Amino acid sequence: MSGRIEVWAPDGLPEVGAGDDLAGLVLAAVGADLADGDVLCVTSKVVSKAEGRTRAGDREAAVAEETERVVAQRGATRIVRHRLGLTMAAAGVDASNVAPGSVVLLPLDPDRSARGLRREVAARAGTNVGVVVTDTAGRAWRQGQTDIAIGAAGLVVAEDHAGRTDAYGNPLAVTLPAVADEIAGAAELVQGKLTGRPLAVVRGRADLVLPPGEDGTGAVALVRPEGGDLFGYGAREAVVRALGGDDADRAPFGEAVPLAELQSAVGRVVGRGRAMSSTLSLTFDGQPDHDELRLPEGSDRTAVAAVCFAHGWRIRRWEETVAGVVCDLSPVST
Rank of each mutant, 00 (worst) to 15 (best):
P171M: 10
G85C: 06
E66G: 00
G57A: 04
V240F: 09
S113K: 05
V133K: 00
L194A: 15
R81A: 02
D135R: 13
E214G: 00
S330Y: 04
R314T: 12
A137V: 14
W8T: 10
P252W: 03
R142H: 11
R53L: 12
A162T: 15
S96Y: 09
V103R: 04
L210M: 12
A219Y: 02
A162H: 03
A137L: 13
M1S: 13
V307L: 08
V47Q: 00
A184I: 07
E320G: 07
T43A: 04
V70G: 01
P296R: 04
D291W: 14
A62E: 13
R250P: 09
W141H: 14
E68H: 11
A28H: 11
V129G: 01
P258W: 08
A50P: 08
R124N: 13
G85I: 07
A50T: 06
L22R: 08
A91Q: 02
P225A: 08
L329E: 05
T195H: 15
G228Q: 09
L84E: 10
D291N: 12
G228Y: 01
R205Q: 08
S278F: 12
E15T: 12
V156S: 07
F284A: 14
D291L: 00
E292W: 06
S281A: 14
K49T: 02
F253E: 06
K193S: 14
R224H: 02
V98G: 07
D215T: 11
G154A: 07
A64S: 07
A64D: 15
R294E: 11
A137P: 00
I150Y: 05
A275P: 05
R317Y: 03
A167L: 12
G154R: 01
L243Y: 15
P100W: 09
A89K: 05
A173P: 00
R272E: 15
P198C: 08
V103D: 01
G24H: 10
R301Q: 15
L117P: 05
D11F: 12
A260W: 06
T134A: 15
V46W: 05
R119F: 03
G232C: 03
D215F: 11
A62N: 03
G101K: 03
G163I: 12
A91L: 06
G192K: 08
A242C: 09
R59D: 10
V121A: 02
A256M: 02
S96M: 13
L230G: 13
A158L: 09
T136R: 13
V80M: 08
D215C: 02
A178K: 14
D58R: 04
D229Q: 03
D247H: 12
T127S: 08
A306T: 12
V93E: 06
P107V: 09
T217W: 01
M276D: 07
E255K: 13
L84I: 05
G227I: 04
P252M: 03
I79N: 00
N128E: 13
P225K: 03
W313S: 07
A23T: 09
G24A: 10
S330T: 14
T279W: 03
D33C: 05
A50V: 03
P212L: 05
L106M: 13
